[in-house]
Simulated scan of single mutants.
Amino acid sequence: MAIAGETAVIDGRPYEQIGGITASGIVCVADHASNFVPDDIPLGVAPELMEQHVAIDIGVHGVATRMAHRHGIPAHLAQVSRLVVDLHREEDHPNVVPTSSDGYIIPGNIGANLESRLERFHRPYHNALAQWLEAQNPKLILSLHSFTPAMASCDKPRPWDLSLLYNQDDRAARLAIRLFGELGLNVGDNEPYSGAELNATMNRHAEAHGRPYCFIEVRQDRIATRADQSRWAAMIAEVAGRVALALE
């Protein structure tokens, strides 16, 4: 099942890649761009839950595809929901196949065959991403996510329009925080999550190889419509281009 306009499944793979070798040196990765669940994996959750943040980073697929098609930033995007397997977790992370998320129980994942999920989805996704990045040899990686205005399990509001997350390598993040701030946006610095604790994909594919990256979290209500997605795609592409130039 999928949100209209959010995602499509291509060739049964856990990922899709949009765009060729980039001339800009900037690429985009989106681990939570899909809410697709294969028919042979019954999660046992209400259908409406699959259209919420627990299943997909709302708006991310639209922003990433627009950056690829309109701004020359190729994308590597997930084609499976994080409720099937969380591609933004290490293989040994306790929530790589979540049994609960934001207060919701995921019955179909209790006692699930972890090795099967990893072999079918997680490893092909990351193996393909590693090969793709080797071919792209990017100057800058954009890791694109979205977050909710408030957690379902906690009504404390999140005021940021977007946040930049990082672990040890904050070269690109520091530049991006300043540039987005100059656009009048409320920019979080390692909020509402810390990249020191939640940075699996960039730890593996960026920091481990010395590749600069911006882990961008956009508040999902800012990118909920196609018009908003187009506007944010242009804005992120512009800032990313300036960051890449500053890093040279």
Rank of each mutant, 00 (worst) to 15 (best):
H32P: 10
I3W: 07
A173K: 13
S230A: 15
L144K: 04
S194E: 13
L142T: 01
V85K: 02
L165W: 07
G12T: 10
L49Y: 07
Q52C: 13
A68S: 09
I236N: 00
W160A: 06
V80S: 01
A128K: 07
L198H: 15
L162P: 06
R219F: 05
E248K: 13
E91F: 03
A200F: 15
A233E: 10
R242F: 00
R117M: 15
H209G: 04
F180Y: 15
D228I: 06
S24V: 01
Y213S: 14
I26P: 06
A75I: 02
H76T: 02
L118W: 03
L49T: 11
P192F: 04
E16V: 01
A64M: 01
D228T: 06
D155P: 15
V9L: 07
N203V: 08
P107S: 04
I216M: 05
T7L: 12
R82M: 04
Y15L: 04
Y193V: 03
Q79F: 06
D86P: 02
I106F: 06
C28L: 15
M202L: 10
Y104R: 14
L133I: 10
N127W: 07
I141D: 00
V29E: 03
V96L: 08
S146E: 01
E6N: 08
D31I: 02
R123S: 04
S100F: 05
M1N: 02
D57R: 14
R222Q: 11
S230N: 11
H209Y: 15
M202Y: 12
Y104S: 09
E51S: 08
H32K: 10
V80A: 04
G210S: 13
A55K: 00
P149T: 14
S24N: 09
V187A: 11
L140S: 12
G44C: 13
S100D: 14
M50N: 01
S101R: 14
H205D: 00
A64Y: 01
P38R: 10
H53E: 01
P98K: 03
G108Y: 04
N95G: 09
R231M: 13
G25I: 14
G72C: 02
L43W: 09
I18F: 06
R219Y: 04
T7S: 15
R117C: 11
P124K: 10
Y213D: 03
I10T: 11
G181R: 09
P157M: 13
